[in-house]
Write a protein that binds this DNA or RNA. Structure first.
Lengths: 339, 339
DNA sequence: CTGAAAGCGCTTACAG
DNA sequence: CTGAAAGCGCTTACAG
């Protein structure tokens, strides 16, 4: 069916080895035969079979991306496409391809990870963390298969990982609100199983403490899922009889919901309540008022993750590396008191 | 290094063929040897090499997904993850894997498409349309490689494709506004190169016409990119001296921007201006006020696309199929006049 | 500079 | 029910 190396070898009157060497740009081939073979390859519309090459080379140039959150609606967060873009940009530069896990539930995730790691399809895996206890991490560790985690692992030392400094981010955003004169600052959307939210919360607590503001646990609203909506969380907060002057939401999307409730209650943002989020989603600019947030550079999280992975694959010596991607406070109207 | 079929054959004292048959669950193998071989496979932690199997089978069970819009920020639209989820759900059920194109610019896209199609890695391709003139379509057509387009092609007849009926959707949404008493309805965000937006616009025009409302071209605001923001488009509209009572944005995200400007100008939604969009992004529920939109079922677009592709791959006879995914008007406060 | 041969790890008619 | 052999389409030491 398809044109193979043998077909063009025959037509060119050379051996398959020679054709292979022409393709590989082996310098030992004479210019004459190189030309001749190339011409015939063109004419016969030859394209190397990547699978065969992978088998012979023992190298597939495919990396797997496992997205645990893909099952649920959270996957619609702009964060994920940005990470994928980042991964993809580095993949292209290094002639790698990206295989993504097709997963609905944790069962399928496990299966995907196993298949990627044991099936010899992928050379390495990028795992997008979503839960604190990620069984895929221990699985990959057990298999001794190269991978990079996007997000903080349970144990720093045996894993390659990339993340923001979420503690610092939480601290920074809280400090910004304190500087704007707030002392009653709520923190909504903490999911205890998610390191990200816990780290941000701890940053918040630290900032309060350093400014001599006692931490009121009643101002902290937990959430069971990262997808819970801010509207309900905000409502829960108000039902506790707490009326903060500032609200930090663990994600911008939560903030939009919270802002809706605040407005419905006839309160003004930022005059009555300032609101700030994390992740700087594109819409943060277009909410009403525009939302102060923290740009986490998801693109860089992705590209750096693949860089680490490729480094690990091509390095002779094993080491466990970590990369912290800088984040940046983006101040908008939702936290600007006009005093 | 890795355990191969030969290794376990030796240990089990059978031939590699037998091991292969055990793996393939060939019924001709005796229960006894089956058990024995399975046990040793377990003990030795054997996993078949997918690449080798692909080469022998001439079947990779990998399908490629090419995302032309991946280059730009538009990829952050919740639409894409949803499509991917849809594709992925069907992929998992059919034991297929998904390879995504790593592309930044049209050049890279072309390269990806060629590689996927000619390299023998993927058995078929799902192409997410983004431009009217998609060179990848003609490329794949020329290569006679199986693919399904998500979005409407230039020529219906030679392509498998999946889409919503965007004309009907545009019509439906416009009619809803007309029913709410609006006669001065603007339509913003038309990108002439995008079939989607043109079809929706034509539906709008048709609805106006059927209700005896003359179409005022001044009320239609074009956009150069799908990523243009609604804030600016809305501003452009108002600068023309046109003050509609209803605004339809070609995408919900545009509407959020438009709503921001409207509110800034001291106008009320929906009392002064009703706003409605398409695509029903998750945030439509949480905007202020909640945004009327059209649910396009992106998940189904994706899953149906893969279903069509698999059908095409496994069918003996070639045919060009088309699937229209139903959409549903979701009415929220942004268009509910309280008269 | 080029070719014959072995090998990558599997599958599958063909015999028996 | 099982094995020996050929083959999938490449690559790459080894000779020459």
């Amino acid at each position: 069916m398809r044109v193979t190396i043998n077909d063009i070898a025959k037509v060119a009157g050379v051996s398959p080895s020679t054709v292979s060497r022409v393709i590989a740009n082996n310098p030992k081939i004479s210019a004459a035969t190189r030309e001749k073979v190339f011409k015939i390859m063109q004419e016969m519309n030859y394209h190397p079979n990547i699978i065969a090459r992978s088998l012979a080379n023992q190298s597939t140039r495919i990396i797997g991306v496992v997205i645990p959150g893909m099952a649920d609606k959270a996957f619609q967060h702009p964060f994920y496409p940005e990470i994928l873009r980042g991964i993809s940009s580095i993949a292209y530069k290094n002639k790698y391809n990206i295989l993504i896990s097709s997963i609905g539930n944790p069962e399928e995730e496990k299966h995907s990870v196993k298949q990627f790691a044991c099936g010899g399809i992928t050379e390495g895996i990028i795992l997008l963390a979503s839960r604190t206890r990620n069984s895929s991490v221990s699985e990959l560790l057990k298999l001794d298969f190269p991978f990079v985690l996007v997000g903080k692992p349970e144990n720093d030392h045996e894993v390659n990982w990339v993340d923001n400094d979420n503690f610092a981010i939480g601290y920074q955003l809280t400090q910004h609100l304190i500087e704007q004169g707030h002392r009653k600052i709520a923190f909504i959307g903490v999911v205890p199983e998610h390191f990200v939210t816990m780290d941000r919360l701890n940053g918040y607590k630290q900032a309060l403490q350093e400014h001599g503001i006692p931490c009121d646990e009643q101002l902290i609203v937990e959430s069971r899922f990262i997808t819970d909506n801010g509207y309900d969380l905000m409502k829960k907060l108000l039902e506790r009889g707490k009326l903060p002057t500032g609200v930090i939401g663990c994600d911008d999307l939560l903030c939009f919901g919270a802002m809706k409730l605040i407005t419905e209650r006839g309160l003004k943002i930022p005059e009555d309540i300032a609101v700030a989020g994390f992740n700087n989603v594109p819409l943060a600019d277009y909410s009403h008022p525009p939302l102060t947030s923290v740009e986490i550079n998801a693109f860089s999280l992705g590209s750096k993750a693949l860089e680490l992975l490729l480094a690990a694959l091509h390095s002779e010596y094993q080491s466990f590396n970590r990369a912290i991607i800088p984040a940046k406070l983006v101040i908008r109207e939702s936290t600007l008191s006009r005093r």
